[in-house]
Structures are given as C-alpha cells and as structure tokens.
Simulated scan of single mutants.
Amino acid sequence: MKRFCFLVLAALAAAALFAGLVHAALVTAHVSEPAATTVYGLTPRRLWATTVAVLALVGVVIGGLALARPAGRFGTASGRLGAIVALVAGLIAMINGGLNLALATGGPGTGNGVVGGAVAVVLGLIGMVLGGLALARSCSPG
C-alpha cells in the first residue's frame, strides 16, 4: 500500500513538473496568452507540432529503456544504439519544437501548435538527458 501511494504521488509530482516546464517554455517563447478566437481542427502547424511531440515521446521511451536495460539480449551494443537513437530523436524534436514556437504568431488555440511545440521541447530535452545518461553508462568500463 505504501508503495502504491508513493507511485501515485510520484506520478502526480512528475505531471505537475511537466506542466510547469511546458508553461515555462510557452512563457519564454512569449506565446502564453490564449487566443481570442479558438481555431478548431488540425492545421499544418498543429500536425507539425504533434509529429515532433510524438517523436520526442519515442525518444523518451527509448532513452528510458536504454537506461533501464543497457545490456539487452543482443549484447551491450543495443543499449548504446538505444541511447544514440534517444539523443538524436530528442535533438530533432527540440529543434523542431523550438522552430514551431519561434514561428508562432499567437498562443494556445490559434492553430499554430504552440502547446505541441512546447511539449516537444520539454520531452526532447528529457529524451536527450535519458539518452546521454544511457550512453555514458554504456561507455563506462565495467
């Protein structure tokens, strides 16, 4: 029971931290004010932001797996490969999310994909950190 409560509290803390980081990215990019009129549906910039956010999420998952299991059934190279994939996916997602935020002309609800861009920046950074830790762990002797 204590472990379950700890996991729930840890998940809530992680969600709050993630939301705070996304908000900080929106404020830093000066696009935190919501739109006066909301655009519904999928726009090209929302599609771009969603795609790079999914890429960043894939980088986080692969980086986490590479960090958790650096020596897979294919040997130690699979942990190194996963770390490199996480680093590259995180970097691509961070760059594209940052470009999306830089090109945005309005805040959330304008159809510019600013929330997805901010999520991509934050998740890309997390994926790069996990990939870097996994790469450092796979390169260290013993």
Rank of each mutant, 00 (worst) to 15 (best):
A49V: 03
A83W: 01
A68F: 03
F74N: 14
A68G: 14
G98V: 10
G64A: 12
L91I: 07
V58C: 13
T76L: 07
A102R: 15
A71N: 07
N100E: 11
A77Q: 15
G79S: 02
I84P: 03
A56M: 07
G90S: 08
V88Q: 00
G90I: 04
I84Y: 05
A53C: 12
A56P: 12
L99D: 09
R73L: 02
G98Q: 08
A86W: 10
V52L: 03
A53Q: 13
A102G: 07
M94N: 02
V88S: 12
G97Q: 08
G72H: 01
R80L: 06
V52Y: 13
G75T: 07
A56D: 06
I84S: 06
G63A: 10
S78W: 10
A104V: 05
L103A: 13
A66E: 02
L81M: 14
L101D: 00
G75R: 12
V58L: 15
V88D: 09
A53H: 07
L57Q: 15
T76I: 08
G64L: 11
G64K: 04
A56K: 08
A93P: 02
L67I: 04
L65E: 14
G64C: 06
G82A: 06
A77V: 10
A49N: 11
G79P: 07
A53R: 02
L55M: 14
